[in-house]
Amino acid sequence: MDFLSPEEWQAVRLSLIVALRSVAVSLVPAIAIAWVLVRGRFPGRMLLDALVHLPLVVPPVVVGWGLLMLFGVRGPIGAPLQHWFGIRLVFSTDGAALATAVMSFPLIVRAVRLGLEHADLGLEQAARTLGAGRWDVFLTVTLPLMTPGILAGAVTAFAAGLGEFGAVITFASNIPGETQTLPLAIYAATQSPGGEGTAARLALVSFILAITGLLAAELIARRMNRLLGRG
């Protein structure tokens, strides 16, 4: 493939890795949070709801700054991580994945939540009277019925994660091969003389990836809903 230079390929590959890791990290917490938001009845539910959706409305740079404060080498979480486990998140691929995960978290939660609202409480009650305990019901009835929402959320978050810019550059910086994902590489190219070709090619690649992701999410949702007999 001569369309992209090795450096450009590196940015594409890194973007895919970062987006994939971000989804992997946030999927289980997102399912848990969505479940709590839909089924939970406790004070502070609205506050939690607002907190989860914060990355949608706060400038990404502010999210990146917040992560820097928390997970920086002197931050209240970053310092112990570094000291006890030798894990450094700032300026690393893992850090880029974390920043991306935080940014796309509300997207997954929203999709999973929609899926959960489809999962009929009445079916869970029926399952309980048939002898299934809470966890059994969750794994055999609720979770399968949420699957369309979970998959749609994961694919959307993956597609959006490929293009996360502000939080990544603030928290993880713009290091080629480490944290320079597609949008960061595009930004770097536009800042350097003679980078127009690189910028255009990478922009085309991100466009194709995003469209593919969205179409995949839609197709999966339709297919799953047909399987579940929802027309």
Binding site: G122, L123, Q125, A126, T129, G131, D136, G229
Partner: peptide, 16 residues
């Protein structure tokens, strides 16, 4: 689940 009182509902509530 410990009562073993299986219930049939008005809307069959089969697992789709």
């Amino acid at each position: 689940e410990a009562r073993r009182c299986a219930t049939v509902f008005q809307d069959a509530r089969l697992f789709p």
